[in-house]
Amino acid sequence: MHEYSIVASLIDRVQHEAALHGGSRVHRLHVKIGELSGVEVDLLKTAFDTFRERTICAGAELAIDTVAPAWACPSCDRSLALGAILRCDDCGRPARMVQGDEIILERIEMEAPDV
């Protein structure tokens, strides 16, 4: 289950930011997960709850913002309906994903007297 390896990378990153800012306890993490990112939100939560103990994230909350997929034509910007053929009706070009594959750490809320 790759959600565990994503959580490991997440906690590493938080650790790094905490060191940079002289932070100690983390209260909350805000992440953005696209519905077409390949990451299951429920599994990510479970993995986080398991892994956070004895790390800087112990007791922290994981706030997940999910992002619905959207596709558009790269040349005329027309947006495509979900489930449609991924080709622009007007100009025939293959669609481009506008959003929906995010696996992003947005923000960390932590106790950091140095900021």
Partner: peptide
Amino acid sequence: TCGCGDPEIVPIEVQERILSDN
């Protein structure tokens, strides 16, 4: 956000892919 009343909680903006190391 959590109302814990701690005066030293700060938001650190990251806005980066979690797998940026990879």
